[in-house]
Amino acid sequence: MYYIGIDIGSTASKVSVFNDQNLVLNFSMPTGWSSVEVSKIVYEKLEKMNIDKDNSRIIATGYGRVSVPYADKTITEITCHGKGAHYLLGEDCTVIDIGGQDTKIITVENDRVTNFTMNDKCAAGTGRFLELMANSLAIGIPELAELALKGKEISITSMCTVFAESEVISLIGKGTPREDIARGVINSITGRVYTLLYKHGIKGKIYLTGGLCEIKPFVELLSERLGKEVISSPLGRYAGSIGAALMGF
């Protein structure tokens, strides 16, 4: 029996496959413009591995979860991220997930999500914000984080993504070193996470999921800002899909 978790996020779609108790495969692809399309492609890929509706249990999660017609069940990304983080870390924890559209703090106790907080109605402090800022500096997010390590503390004061972008552009115009701007951009994200996290409350270790957990300098800067060790693991970006698959057990 296969247990499949499909996490259709706003930027990337992630898939995890369990063969009975064993996690055998994770893959991801850009969500593109249509979550219906991407869910079709995922199914074709699975079929090539001889996995179909009959020999598997499929759980869909993420904002596009309703666009997976062949799913047995849909569960929110919050529950799945909590479950997946617990699996990857092997213990209860407080999960930080910086997604494309929102940032979430999730408390996992006894392998269950007991509480969560999400940022409100706005791209400030999300992955999308980082992406836009990196674009205005004409670099990628990994380079941005790398640069930030070497930068001096400056702050980007605008909370709103649109205004922050023009702030960055004017800093470039003023000849502010890119390292410092990068540092400012990262600081505004880590600062948002800081307030969200402390307002929510911390229980156990802090575990970062989502695409940013692969970027070491970012994890480092986040730990520094939070004043606590932030743990991540290479599979952290699959926490949602792994959790979804596990929810099918």
């Binding site: 904002y63 929110t76 919050i78 929102d102 269950r112 999500v113 007991t114 999400m118 109605k121």
Partner: peptide, 24 residues
């Protein structure tokens, strides 16, 4: 209606934490 999707996700996730509690 601009955040209907987000509200839905929050509400569903909240109910998921409750359902699991009563299941235990």
């Amino acid at each position: 209606d601009s955040d209907t999707g987000q509200v839905k996700t929050r509400v569903e996730a909240f109910l998921e934490t409750i359902e699991k509690k009563s299941a235990t």
